[in-house]
Design a protein around this nucleic acid. Structure first.
Length: 280
DNA sequence: AAACAAACCTGTGCGC
DNA sequence: TGCGCACAGGTTTGTT
């Protein structure tokens, strides 16, 4: 599920439903989900704390607390966050439950079958030591804004295959496999082009494509794929998958040219979808 | 520095 | 119907 648009959709839901509320009680089922610190550290750090707001940096959700600490949640491959009525039956793989103050009585569930995701409370004055990847994160095209000039400089600063560069969270934060393939297709650029040999005209197109794809996907509430990992905190699916032009469309006709079929190859260990005719 | 493979886990879909 | 394998939205680590 979760790339920038899905995480942003979750952020908006949490900002509306959880910000301003106090966490009265915390349950941790799976130790692995809190592996960065410990079960007790999470319980101690959250119990009695009020969530001031819900922010996002790349694919990381960050919640400043009134204690001065911050709650960080990352969904990785299969994580979901749901706000549910207190006492409602929890789905399998619900690893963390936060009981929220106020009416109606509700709980925030962190659900994660593959357990790659994590939940941690950290001290933001020691980010570099406690959350090194946050300190080293690249520019977020939506939260920070990304100018064409800034983007061009990033592509020129090294010679990497363009897809690898776009997926590198230390360079640009938030783009994942779906939105990378979609953006490259919209811009007509092949995934294996060296970043420093993308022409100025293509840089302009790719920059616009990334902002458009991410923006449209956020408006659509993200992409919900066949396994229906729900996106929103209320369990409502996104619909940007209906607009995918290449992702998961191998063998189907390219919507742009109407002539070639979308191909799927493995690139950098990731399934990569592209149109051999539109993308040079 | 960059490219690649493997690792971390569980569930699902497909071919046989 | 059942079984085994490939593969999945992410990120880190280790090896060429």
């Amino acid at each position: 599920m979760p790339e920038l648009p899905e995480v942003e959709t979750v952020r908006r839901g949490l900002q509306a439903q959880v910000a301003g509320r106090r966490i009265e009680r915390v349950e941790v089922g799976r130790e692995r989900t809190v592996r960065r610190t410990s079960k007790q550290a999470l319980i101690d750090g959250l119990t009695g704390a009020t969530v001031l707001s819900v922010e996002r940096r790349g694919k990381y959700l960050l919640c400043p607390l009134d204690t001065g600490d911050e709650l960080m949640m990352h969904l990785r491959m299969s994580g979901r966050l749901l706000v549910a009525a207190a006492g409602e039956e929890r789905p399998p793989h619900t690893h963390v439950v936060m009981h929220l103050s106020g009416e109606p009585a509700q709980e925030l569930w962190f659900i994660d079958p593959r357990t790659f995701g994590e939940v941690v409370v950290f001290d933001p004055t020691h980010v570099a030591q406690q959350m090194p990847e946050l300190a080293k994160m690249g520019v977020d095209p939506i939260a920070d804004g990304l100018s064409r000039a800034q983007f061009a400089a990033l592509l020129r600063s090294r010679s990497r295959q363009i897809k690898a560069l776009l997926l590198d969270q230390h360079v640009i934060a938030g783009i994942g496999n779906i939105y990378c393939d979609e953006s490259l297709h919209l811009a007509g650029v092949r995934h294996d082009r060296p970043s420093d040999r993308v022409t100025p005209r293509e840089v302009t197109k790719l920059h616009a494509a990334i902002l458009q794809v991410l923006g449209d996907a956020i408006e659509a509430g993200g992409s919900t794929l066949a396994d229906t990992q729900y996106v929103g905190v209320d369990g409502v699916a996104g619909w940007f998958q209906l607009s995918h032009r290449v992702y998961d469309r191998a063998g189907q006709r390219c919507i742009t040219c109407g002539k070639a079929d979308i191909r799927k190859v493995t690139f950098g260990g990731r399934g990569t979808h592209f149109c051999p005719r539109c993308q040079q």
